[in-house]
Design a binder for these strands. Structure first.
Length: 106
DNA sequence: CCTATGACTCATC
DNA sequence: GGATGAGCCATAG
């Protein structure tokens, strides 16, 4: 199922496997497939990520995709994702060292 | 087949 | 810590 022939299916499958409270970076997801298409993952999310927990996939440093910070934050609170309380809610970031997940660390 | 496009990443100033 | 530029890769048209 994962490999239906397109990178999209592989990425979607991996993202759907990410457990709640954990997050992965676009680069890590792409790297998991031996590709550096960090933008690809983002591109796929924007186009097909509608059916996967895209909020568990963030950029490097622990920042959610620009324009989706509010939506992502909402899910993080619901799933109790480890967040680092910044000066304000508008400047939050993921507790990357703790929330980082890997396809074998499940 | 070629061009345009991104929910990205890294290096540098 | 923030801003800028260039690199990268697969999909869609």
């Amino acid at each position: 199922m994962a490999s239906d022939g397109s990178f999209v299916t592989d990425v979607l499958d991996l993202v759907s496997e990410i457990p709640s409270g954990r997050v992965m970076t676009y680069g890590s997801v792409a790297a998991a497939f031996g590709s550096r298409g960090a933008r690809l993952v983002g591109q796929i999310m924007a186009r097909y990520g509608a059916d996967v927990p895209w909020w568990r996939v963030i950029r490097a440093g622990g920042h959610p995709p620009v324009g989706h910070e509010e939506q992502a934050l909402e899910h993080y609170r619901i799933e109790s994702t480890p967040l680092l309380s910044s000066t304000s809610e508008a400047g939050y970031r993921i507790d990357w060292p703790i929330a980082r997940w890997s396809p074998g660390d499940a």
